[in-house]
Design a protein around this nucleic acid. Structure first.
Lengths: 150, 150
DNA sequence: CCGTATCCATTCCGATACTG
DNA sequence: CAGTATCGGAATGGATACGG
């Protein structure tokens, strides 16, 4: 059998998310979509990904309800790919990856792109994991509660 | 050539993050590490991953400074794998994936594991992307500022 | 410009057997 | 228990050629 282990029936939400978007290209396609890319060629040039791979990823995203395929806005015969609400909900995921990368994958002073508040032109606040009443939580202050099949 | 395109020299922090943790198993290993797994066998049983794959992933994480290999706490001859500060900083990434999965990958009423505030036993607050002065930001209220090589 | 289709190399992954 | 080694099948990814 082989084929990759699937996590789409896993009880853990992290596993299901990974199943949906956890490969090399998927998250970067979503990033580009947030950045305004809509056309096949935009994704293709931005990412340098092979066209057949891009085709497959876009289809998976459309099937999964993360992107919607809509008629091109310029009236041409082609399609554009826009984030659905489900896709837009990935915003914190992308921001979390961006902030982690900024803090941990660049040498001091090494240039990198930044995500800015468009109105103020300033960098964003770091994401915080908070309790229901707003206390910042460290990992060890949380625990996973497993569900039983009952 | 061939071989996967690497993003470890990309100017985009998202790309570098994906390069470090963007495959099927890596994020789940990190999730388990947050959940308290430390031993080879714990990861192996929890994930059902082949041992050679797990070996390779653990090594990559140790090399990348995300996990540290330390002597086993029970005095046995083996190693344990614990999150470094860099690894702990992935907490918002895992939480973001978890929350997205909860909201978008389960049927209403379908059971799934939950991440709880250990002290209160309550679910966490949803992650929010905020401006420097604390305003919630939608994706279209942000923009990526590219750096120039100069 | 937008894809689809095909080809091929590489990598990934799972299973299993084996060592300490 | 904690890994290492090897094997084979599968999926991935890149290049290219082709058609709408």
């Amino acid at each position: 059998m082989v084929a990759r282990t699937r996590f789409d029936d896993n009880e853990c939400p992290v596993a299901r998310s990974v199943d949906a978007i956890g490969d090399w290209w998927s998250l970067l396609i979503v990033r580009d979509a947030f950045d305004g890319s809509r056309r096949f060629g935009e994704f293709q040039r931005s990412l340098g990904v092979a066209k057949n791979i891009l085709t497959a990823r876009l289809r998976t995203f459309v099937d999964g309800g993360i992107l919607a395929s809509v008629p091109a806005s310029d009236g041409s015969a082609y399609r554009e790919y826009v984030l659905t609400p489900k896709g837009e909900a990935l915003f914190p995921v992308i921001v979390a990856l961006r902030q982690w990368g900024e803090a941990n994958s660049f040498a001091p002073g090494e240039p990198h792109s930044e995500l800015l508040d468009r109105r103020e032109g300033r960098r964003l606040r770091g994401l915080e994991v908070l309790s229901a009443d707003g206390r910042p939580l460290r990992p060890d202050e949380t625990e996973v509660h497993k569900v039983s099949a009952g």
